[in-house]
């Protein structure tokens, strides 16, 4: 309880007749307050500490981010279906097999399958909405936004690993295969097709539009494979032009990932 002697400055104002400083001080000091105990103040301090901006060293940050992603990817592994891993792996084995035994053009093969794991990964990401689990996922501690991002990055990294492995194997079985050219025909479709698929999925939010992307890409690949002159023209551009294409592909991919995250999860609307 505090019952302070009230001191206040009344120079600057008029008071109703008969009210003196003493009178007022006596009057107001009667309305005492029981101060809460320490634990109430502790409670406030605890909840405030969440809002203190944290300064950490760069390597601590790095370690934290690393741990964070490992954790999130671990959870992503739970939700991505086994079928996804098996199917994509088979796709690459099949690709290698037809080049190896049937002599199919290695460039066409790797071009065709190089963006598929990621685009199929998008399907896994929007599965939650499709099967009505999204609302529940959104109410969990780890936000849906984090999960979508982690699943996308996981699918992206997985895709790049598969592409690298296939490229290495193709180079090993056939010394005519050029390392730069292989990189070109796998990275260009990977960035552009992924970016376009993300764009379309963020516009339509649909399972089927994502499937459509895959089929359109397959159709395009086949028509390209029918007329090798396109490929040859593509191969004739110089390194810097190629670098330009690649950079614009990567930028497009980043831009559309952001867009996808925004339209898919940020607005808390479940329909």
């Amino acid at each position: 309880m505090i019952k302070e002697e009230k001191k206040f400055d009344i120079e600057e104002m008029d008071l109703p007749e008969g009210m003196t400083t003493d009178y007022l001080s006596d009057l107001f000091s009667k309305y005492t307050v029981n101060m809460p105990d320490e634990c109430e103040i502790e409670r406030v301090i605890n909840s405030l500490s969440e809002y203190i901006p944290q300064k950490t060293k760069w390597y601590e940050k790095l370690y934290k981010n690393f741990k964070y992603f490992i954790e999130r990817w671990n959870i992503s592994l739970y939700s991505i279906s086994h079928a996804y891993w098996i199917f994509t792996l088979c796709l690459y084995i099949f690709g290698f097999y037809i080049v190896y035994s049937n002599g199919v053009n290695p460039y066409i093969t790797i071009m065709l399958i190089s963006p598929l794991p990621f685009v199929l990964g998008i399907l896994e990401v929007i599965k939650g909405r499709e099967e009505g689990v999204l609302e529940l996922e959104m109410s969990c501690r780890i936000s849906n936004r984090e999960m979508v991002f982690s699943k996308l990055t996981l699918a992206g990294i997985y895709n790049i690993i598969l592409n690298t492995l296939l490229s290495i194997m193709l180079i090993n079985i056939n010394e005519n295969v050029d390392i730069l050219k292989v990189t070109m025909v796998c990275l260009t479709p990977f960035t552009f097709v992924s970016a376009v698929s993300l764009y379309i999925c963020s516009k339509t939010r649909g399972y089927y539009s994502c499937m459509a992307c895959i089929f359109i890409w397959i159709a395009i690949s086949f028509s390209i494979s029918m007329s090798p002159k396109y490929i040859n023209r593509f191969f004739s551009i110089d390194f810097f032009q190629y670098l330009l294409i690649l950079i614009s592909g990567v930028l497009l991919l980043i831009f559309n990932t952001k867009k996808f995250l925004k339209t898919n999860v940020l607005e808390k609307e479940v329909n």
Partner: peptide, 8 residues
């Protein structure tokens, strides 16, 4: 298990 993981 999946939901438990999402719940941390």
């Amino acid at each position: 298990m999946y939901i438990a993981a999402l719940k941390g």
